[in-house]
Amino acid sequence: MPDAADKVVDRALGALVGGALGDALGMPTQLLSPARIAELYGHVEDFVAPFADHPVSKGLVAGTITDDTEQALLLGRILVESGDRFDHARWVNALLDWEREVKARGSYDLLGPSTKRAIDAINNGVPAEEAGRGGDTNGAAMRIAPVGIMMPREPLDALVVKVAETCRATHNTSIAIASAAAVAAAVSLGVSGSDWLAASGHAVAAARLGATLGHWVTGGDIAARIIWAQELVRGKPEKEAIKLIADLVGTGVASQESVPAAFAVLEVAQGDAWQAAVIAANLGGDTDTIGAIAAGMAGACAGLSKLPQDRIAQLHGIDIAQVRALAGDLVAARTRKAGPGKEGAA
Rank of each mutant, 00 (worst) to 15 (best):
D6Y: 02
V8P: 05
R11E: 01
L13F: 12
V17A: 07
G18L: 04
A20D: 06
A20L: 02
D23E: 10
P34V: 01
P34Y: 14
R36T: 15
Y41N: 15
G42K: 14
H43Q: 14
V44E: 10
A49Q: 12
F51N: 04
K58L: 03
K58Y: 09
T69D: 11
L73I: 03
L74G: 10
V80Q: 05
V80W: 08
E81S: 12
S82G: 06
G83I: 01
R90G: 15
W91E: 07
L95T: 04
D97M: 03
W98A: 02
R100Q: 09
V102D: 08
D109K: 11
L110V: 00
L110S: 05
K116C: 04
R117A: 13
V126T: 15
A128K: 07
E129C: 07
A131Q: 09
R133S: 14
G134D: 08
G134V: 00
G139F: 01
A141Y: 06
V147P: 12
I149L: 04
M151P: 10
L159G: 13
R168Y: 04
H171L: 05
T173K: 11
I177V: 14
I177S: 11
A178W: 04
S179K: 05
A182G: 08
V183M: 04
A184F: 06
A185Q: 11
A185E: 09
S188T: 04
L189A: 09
W196F: 12
W196P: 02
A198K: 10
A198P: 01
H202F: 07
A206L: 03
V217E: 08
G219C: 06
G220N: 14
I222W: 09
A223L: 03
R225V: 00
I227H: 12
A229I: 01
L232Y: 12
P237L: 02
K239C: 03
E240L: 14
A246F: 08
V249F: 04
G250Q: 12
T251V: 13
T251A: 07
S255K: 08
Q256H: 14
A264H: 12
Q270Y: 02
W274C: 09
Q275R: 15
A277N: 13
V278N: 09
L283P: 11
G284F: 03
D286V: 01
D288N: 11
D288R: 08
I293C: 06
A295K: 07
M297K: 09
M297N: 02
G303L: 01
L304Q: 05
Q309L: 01
D319P: 10
I320E: 06
I320Q: 12
V323C: 07
G328D: 09
L330V: 06
A332K: 15
T335K: 11
K337S: 14
G344V: 01
